[in-house]
């Protein structure tokens, strides 16, 4: 039995009505990010069959209070489940992988053709700026792949606030609704992206075929230590 089987439903008329429409998404071209540790991290789109594996793996983090891993893990869980069950419109999900091992997770979605919404960035391998690099990768997707004008962003942790709101000089937009609760929304505009991407967004393309091959398969995750 495939790991996806339990999420399969009959695509009947009702299910058709329940599924969100799509405005269309372009593929994200994988890239290699050289880490300070000497390792090479591949950022690529997640495959549907990998999602249930990660859902199981992050469950223990629901009790990990430090650095807000509990709330981020719980929310990522629902977002990934929403993606699997076709209940979120135009969601994307990227892994950061090092030799097939999960180093980080980023996701978000398109609100409409010109506005994006950042969901979460979770670092599994800490201390190598993985989170900062993955966040930049998803902003790259919004602006440079989907040609959007702005991305709505919130932060659950002080680390996130420092990394995104402060370092990218995000514009405060408390009146713009964000799906992640009633916390204040900030906006990364195209102008800010163009200003900061030279310093924030790195990665080598085309990705080395050897590195792509080494990360073709997501390795089983026995335990996540953060």
């Amino acid at each position: 039995m495939s790991v996806l089987d339990k999420y399969n439903v009959e695509l009947n008329e009702m299910e058709q009505k329940l599924r969100p429409p799509t405005i269309g998404m372009v593929p994200y071209e994988p890239k290699v990010i050289p880490l300070t540790t000497g390792e090479d991290m591949l950022v690529r789109e997640a495959k549907p069959e990998e999602i249930p594996v990660v859902l199981e793996a992050i469950k223990p983090l629901f009790d990990h209070v430090a650095d807000y891993y509990d709330i981020v893990a719980a929310r990522i869980y629902t977002e990934l489940l929403g993606m699997l069950r076709y209940r979120v419109q135009d969601e994307y999900l990227f892994w950061g992988l090092i030799n097939g091992e999960l180093a980080g997770i980023v996701n978000g979605r398109l609100v409409n053709a010109k506005t994006g919404m950042s969901y979460h960035t979770m670092t599994i391998k800490r201390g190598a700026r993985v989170g900062a690099q993955l966040f930049a990768a998803k902003m790259e997707y919004h602006f440079d792949f989907m040609n959007q004008d702005e991305v709505l962003i919130v932060a659950e942790s002080p680390n996130g606030f420092r990394r995104w709101m402060i370092e990218y000089e995000l514009e405060s937009a408390p009146d713009r609704p964000h799906e992640l609760g009633g916390v204040p929304t900030y906006v990364l505009t195209r102008a800010l992206w163009e200003k900061h991407k030279g310093n924030k967004n790195v990665g080598l393309r085309p990705a080395d075929p050897e590195i792509i091959k080494a990360n073709e398969v997501l390795k089983p995750i026995s335990e996540i230590k953060v």
Binding site: P34, L35, Q133
Partner: peptide, 30 residues
């Protein structure tokens, strides 16, 4: 911090802004 750090990764001009950003010029994170 018990992470190995590779010299080329924190000095390579092509990626240094992201891997080893400036904090207080000329000092970088590392």
């Amino acid at each position: 911090i018990q992470n190995k750090v590779v010299l080329e990764r924190i000095t390579d001009e092509r990626i240094i802004a992201a891997t080893n950003p400036l904090v207080a010029d000329p000092l970088r994170q590392f």
